[in-house]
Design a protein around this nucleic acid. Structure first.
Lengths: 110, 110
DNA sequence: TGTTTATATTGCAATATTACGATATTGTTT
DNA sequence: AAACAATATCGTAATATTGCAATATAAACA
């Protein structure tokens, strides 16, 4: 026990869960917000923007990258990170799906 | 160490992280999808829809409720669960914010 | 009242996450 | 080549999550 039973669920459900889980930490929300704010890829500066140590930030960046929410490319000495749109589209699609469903039938309910 | 340093981040960042984290498990995605599919509140039936034990499902429902993504009201013997729109609106807003930002400036990048 | 049905809570074991110091790696600069 | 800068990885401690058996609770029904 203790481990998530991923094989009991569909690929789509697992995929969405991975994306959501990656955003399930304030530091990773902060990273995404920062990448949005600066409006381009950001090359070597993210550590200074967060109240966490360098190894910890590096770990959070890795998780966002593994989930497909950001991408990073080597730029000389530092690394350029930016938002990976396909990953975002996937999870955004989930919420759009939910909302359109809700708009259709929001009667006979609690 | 080991505990998330929530007090280092803004309320908004923590709030979004809580919502995302609640969706960060395939069983909880499955619950949300089921609530959408049946199109009304669902009163006592959720356990049979998931490949997990009753206590585990109950725990996942509790987490979704705590995060504000669903709401449950007692209906005699069983409990009626349905989607809680305000919670969904919050996290949906985050993705809309991201997309509008991305549409504006997707140049000079990786 | 006693039994059944639906859901919640408790307690606990297995596993995962979070955080960081120490160290490694890789490119840049002198 | 040596020193420096930026980032990654390793190792490990603290804490959180996942899952379930056992048990509790509460309403419905015989």
């Amino acid at each position: 026990m203790g481990a998530t039973k991923t094989d009991y669920f569909t690929d789509s459900q697992n995929e969405l869960a991975v994306l959501a889980k990656a955003l399930g930490h304030p530091a990773r929300i902060a990273i995404m917000e920062y990448l949005l704010k600066v409006d381009t890829c950001i090359c070597g500066d993210i550590v200074n923007e967060l109240p966490l140590s360098q190894p910890t930030v590096s770990q959070h960046l890795k998780e966002l990258k593994n989930a497909g929410l950001i991408k990073g490319s080597i730029d000389g000495n530092s690394i350029c990170y930016c938002i990976n749109e396909p990953g975002l589209e996937k999870i955004k699609g989930f919420f759009e799906h939910i909302t359109t469903h809700l708009e259709k039938k929001r009667n006979e309910c609690c």
